[in-house]
Design a protein around this nucleic acid. Structure first.
Length: 404
RNA sequence: GGAGAGGUGUCUGAGUGGUCGAAAGAGCACGCCUGGAAAGUGUGUAUACGCCAAAAGUGUAUCGAGGGUUCGAAUCCCUCCCUCUCCGCCA
């Protein structure tokens, strides 16, 4: 169960839906009468039967009135219904653990050995300063806290990771897209950020646009109001974007360095899938993310989020965390979710099924991967007396194998 | 930012008050034709919601969005949004 305590809400929704249906039936019946009368009037006029036409015309007044009234009622009911419907979180998958806090998350697996560091090992923010990789103060000057400036090999490492992740995603069959970083309200609604997480996004008031908190928003919204042909499913996209999050109210020791930023880089994978295959696909996406972590040589664990810790829109979420050896804690670096029809219902994203009928598709997405905490653990876990060893898979991208 | 043009189905594109959910063509699907294909030919080809146990069927709505005029609107009027062209500015 998600942390959902409004069971009355469901009853209200059902009752509103009943009202909606009966009101529409009434309105449709009257409209049908009025329409056929209008046709008859047309006939009469053409055949010169003016009196008959006038008689019929006189009767249309009350219909018009009734249609208008029912229409207003229907509009009000639909609006009320929509307002309630939007408050309904997604239904958790049956494998989602019951629970309210992160402590109730299920540890699915743990992979790799936690490195044992020397006594004088440093957390990544000290390493970043020592090797002149990241300048947090400079970011404060030009923007504010949480907007770091990457320099030298730190900057190169960012680009290397982005390109590496994109290449790996393409190898796995995802086709790359470059998308807008500002989205409109409809897009925010489509993927479920609005109205739920309004305060999480930066808002450009002058133009009524939101800075994206994740590439999920623009990429998934590519398929808003789309009916896919049967052979176009699944859709597999990947994309790199910076992500912007206000992170209002989260301050303290756990947000030092790269642990929590207002702007960060991420490669996202997104799929639009047939409902019968979406959970199989979720596992594959999880394996793709795990593969990246393995190739980077990072110890990680996979969590199955409990109902209370899961997002509003998700039916099942896996979080991947890497072990940050200097901080001695797990850092979330990816979140892979199946939204089933929650997003597609809002997006009106459908496909044509075997019977040729339109059906809501399932949407999924995952970080593959989010950079800052990957950088943090890479720096910390790979530190030696001689500098920081770059993972082999990245060397073709960085063109250097040591940071020193 | 200034001036103009325009938004119709998967696409092109006709339609200036009734017989228009919408001509025609293209595309697509299925059939015929063919040794096979092309060509040709025939049929079909929007979405949502409602009624119905369901299918069949049927009702309503939708020609950018919202409102108005009218017995009746793709067509007339108003407001808004968007796109394109030219000029200006500019990576």
């Amino acid at each position: 169960m998600k942390n959902f305590k409004q069971l009355d809400l469901v009853d209200e929704i059902i009752s509103l839906d009943d009202q909606r249906r009966s009101t529409q039936t009434n309105m449709d019946n009257i409209a049908a009468e009025a329409n056929s009368a209008a046709k008859q009037i047309g006939d009469f006029m053409r055949n010169g039967k003016k009196e008959e036409a006038e008689v019929l015309k006189a009767k249309t007044g009350t219909w018009k009135e009734d249609i208008k009234n029912f229409g207003e009622q229907l509009g009000a009911i639909e609006e009320a219904l929509q307002q309630k419907l939007v408050l309904l979180p997604n239904l958790p998958h049956h494998t989602v653990p019951v629970g309210l806090t992160p402590d109730d998350n299920e540890i699915v697996l743990e992979h790799g050995d936690k490195p044992v560091l020397a006594d004088n090992a440093m957390p990544h923010w000290e390493l970043a300063a020592k090797y002149n990789l990241i300048d947090f103060e400079l970011g404060v000057k030009i923007t504010g806290a949480g907007f770091p400036v990457y320099k030298n090999k730190g900057a190169k490492l960012q680009r290397a990771l982005i390109n590496y992740f994109i290449d790996e995603a393409e190898k796995a069959g995802y086709s790359e897209v470059v998308v807008p970083l500002l989205v409109n309200e409809a897009s925010g609604f489509g993927t479920g950020q609005l109205p739920d997480k309004e305060g999480q996004m930066y808002f450009v008031g002058l133009d009524n646009l939101f800075l994206i908190p994740t590439a999920e928003v623009p990429i998934t919204n590519l398929y808003r109001d789309v009916i896919l042909k049967a052979d176009e499913v699944p859709v597999k996209n990947c994309g790199y974007t910076p992500c912007f999050r206000r992170e209002a109210g989260s301050y303290g020791a756990h947000v030092r360095g790269l642990n929590r930023l207002h702007q960060f880089d991420k490669v996202e994978i997104v799929q639009v899938e047939h409902p019968d295959k979406s959970y199989e696909t979720l596992e594959k996406m999880s394996l793709h993310v795990q593969g990246l972590l393995q190739k980077l040589g990072l110890p990680y664990r996979v969590l199955r989020l409990c109902g209370g810790d899961m997002g509003f829109a998700s039916a099942l979420t896996y979080d991947m965390e890497t072990w940050s050896a200097a901080q001695q804690r797990w850092l979330e670096v990816s979140s892979v979710s199946n939204f089933e029809t929650f997003q597609s219902n809002r997006l009106k994203l459908r496909f044509r099924n075997a019977e040729g009928k339109t059906q809501l598709a399932h949407t999924l997405n995952g970080s593959a991967l989010a950079l800052p905490r990957i950088v943090a653990t890479l720096l910390e876990n790979n530190q030696t007396e001689n500098g920081i060893k770059v993972p082999e898979v990245l060397v073709p991208y960085t063109k250097f194998d040591w940071i020193n």
